[in-house]
Simulated scan of single mutants.
Amino acid sequence: MRLLLILVLLLAALPARADDEYDACLNDADASMQDMGACGAEWIDREDARLNEMWQALLDELPEASEEMLREEQRAWLAYRDKTCLFYLDAVEYGQVGRYLSYPSCRAFVIAQRTEALGEIRESVAPI
């Protein structure tokens, strides 16, 4: 019963950060954690695709002399991304809810933040 209450509370908190496809996927999931985890993996993949599109758009507009600095920054961010949200995978503390709901939500949010930051860089360097 406690797990169900936690799940309901967590799902109620997710839509503010989730995308519509993730919400629809969760609604269609058969309430198994694995299905919900698959929804999260798809959300992460969508955010990665958005990030990659923004990255390429930024590189297309960035002066060539600045590309290496941006690449170094991106490598540092990738290391950060790979370390974030891992505490949700601690089965003792967070169990299946952490692994299948909290971790994907956290990871997708971190990627979305980077996409937004790259978009802001792009706006600042775009030709007028």
Rank of each mutant, 00 (worst) to 15 (best):
25 C>H: 10
116 E>G: 02
63 P>L: 04
53 E>L: 14
97 V>D: 05
125 V>L: 04
48 D>Y: 04
110 V>S: 09
25 C>R: 05
102 S>A: 08
73 E>Q: 07
72 E>P: 00
73 E>M: 13
128 I>H: 02
23 D>W: 11
120 E>F: 12
108 A>M: 05
117 A>N: 04
110 V>N: 06
101 L>R: 01
20 D>C: 03
44 I>Y: 01
9 L>D: 10
100 Y>E: 10
116 E>A: 08
68 E>T: 08
11 L>K: 13
89 L>E: 06
39 C>K: 01
101 L>V: 13
112 A>Q: 14
71 R>L: 12
93 E>Y: 04
68 E>R: 03
69 M>E: 11
69 M>P: 00
18 A>Y: 01
104 P>S: 07
94 Y>V: 00
11 L>W: 11
126 A>Q: 06
70 L>K: 00
74 Q>N: 01
49 A>C: 09
77 W>I: 08
111 I>N: 07
81 R>I: 00
124 S>L: 11
10 L>Q: 11
116 E>W: 08
43 W>P: 00
115 T>S: 13
59 L>E: 01
81 R>F: 12
79 A>I: 06
121 I>V: 12
58 L>I: 05
125 V>N: 01
18 A>P: 00
54 M>Y: 04
38 A>H: 08
117 A>W: 15
5 L>E: 15
56 Q>A: 12
71 R>M: 03
35 D>G: 13
60 D>W: 10
39 C>M: 02
107 R>W: 06
120 E>G: 01
27 N>E: 15
23 D>I: 12
11 L>I: 09
3 L>D: 15
92 V>W: 09
114 R>S: 04
81 R>W: 09
12 A>P: 00
47 E>T: 03
35 D>N: 14
56 Q>E: 15
110 V>W: 07
44 I>G: 00
112 A>K: 08
